[in-house]
Amino acid sequence: MSEVLATLTSVSKVYRKGKEEVEVLHNLDIEIPKGDFIAIMGPSGSGKTTLLNLLGGLDRPTGGTVVVGDAELSSMSNSQLSHWRSTNIGFIFQFYNLLPVLTAQKNVELPLLLTDFGGGERAKRAGIALDIVGLGDRARHYPRELSGGQEQRVAIARAIVSDPALLLCDEPTGDLDRETADEILRLLQILNREHGKTIVMVTHDAQAAEYANRTLHCDKGTLEAREAV
């Protein structure tokens, strides 16, 4: 067994809507080994996004503990979590969520504003990240001047620019055609295999899940492991 990057121990998550309680996750135990590429599948509303939010320190569990690296997330304050996220987690969303007022280059530099790097160093690192995703020549383009696949590549560059260990992807190909989706998935695979990133990817697409090392099925608050096909 290889080194463990993240551990969820009897994690539960309950949402309250007025008097109604919805238990989205129930006594969940997961270990995520370093360097793994995990796909999470499951019906809508089964708690996949909630799980990613817990792993990324965007939300707190109702019960149980979340440990990522050497950080115990539930014991950290909001601003501690913010600082931790900026260096430890890369987020990739279905709708890219780039800032429309910034160029690709400046979007990728955003997370580096939170570091001590000077302007030159920030530009250099963002340039490297854009090169990794194959968009070195689009640095000066604004999001509206890019295709969906290119926007998602910029978003991936932004996610890796501060060199986090863990990438959390919520339906990263949900808005892309088959061919573009495959390109993005191959890119994630390269990041996993050659750059050592641990990746947790939520997807509705069984073909996308095949790029992962293994697939977990999420349903009714529990996760169940299945062998990757």
Binding site: S79, S82, H83, S86, F91, L99, P100, L110, P111
Partner: peptide
């Protein structure tokens, strides 16, 4: 609002 939420996701603090 989504853009501001993204900034926070990236690690910008509330303040």
């Amino acid at each position: 609002i989504p853009e501001l939420a993204v900034l926070k996701t990236l690690g910008f603090t509330d303040l």
